[in-house]
Amino acid sequence: MIRRKNEAILTAPTLLWLILFFVVPSIAMVVISFRPASIYGGVGEGWTLDAWRALGNPNYPVILWRTVRLSLVTTVICLALALPIAFVLGRMQGKWRTILVMIVIVPFWTNFVIRVAAWRILLHPEGMLRQSLISLGIIGNDTLLLYNEGAVLMVMVYTYLPFAILPLYAAAERFDYSLLEAARDLGASGFTAVTRVFIPGISRGLLTAMALVLIPALGSYVIPDLVGGPGDEMIGNKIAQRTLGDRNLPQAATLSVALLLITLIPMIVVYYLNRRERTHPA
């Protein structure tokens, strides 16, 4: 049944589609980053390093660093919250497990813009939450819940948490919980058993979760735009501004290539660690 011709028929449509609309555009992006901007908002002729030099402009390194910092903090918080949840879910059996997994997944299926909008409305200066906090005296009259880094972080955690829970749960589901009893039997405290046996046991899920949160977090644009203030911009906001605000496409391309390079780091780390684990199984 196996024929080269069949393989080509099955492979070609999608592969060609992805080469045309994914690979070629990515290359175009790199190429355009070395082009000058035209006055009409397009891409000019000739070659230049202007857009790359502009990255030295003190504005960009600050934003790049903020992007990385916020994404890393989001990842750490997401993993910290997802670990106990995966631990509980993995140990459960039967109907309740399915129901709880569904409860965790359902918000994830609701529209992304609506989820962020919900937070914006909830934290709105005129909103119920801020007004009640003020009347309870918990926050002062001049404290805003919106337009600050805290809001950005919280909504990022809210958005990316399912990406951490699902792979960790998948790993915990395969984890043999009797190993924890064995560890306790051999003298480990509950906490030690979890750190020395459970976490190494689901290490691959942990890696996947890390990548699945960190990578999209680095590309955040909607969240800082809707719930952040002017001082909370991330690289995604700058790319959008350069694209649709002042229409400097080569600059947008340069920033995107920089973002791409940053996201490649966790991808390569995960790939390398995964491969090492496969060749030296724990």
Partner: peptide
């Protein structure tokens, strides 16, 4: 990869 990158490219 982040959807932003696919969009811009």
């Amino acid at each position: 990869i982040p959807d932003l990158l696919m969009g811009i490219s």
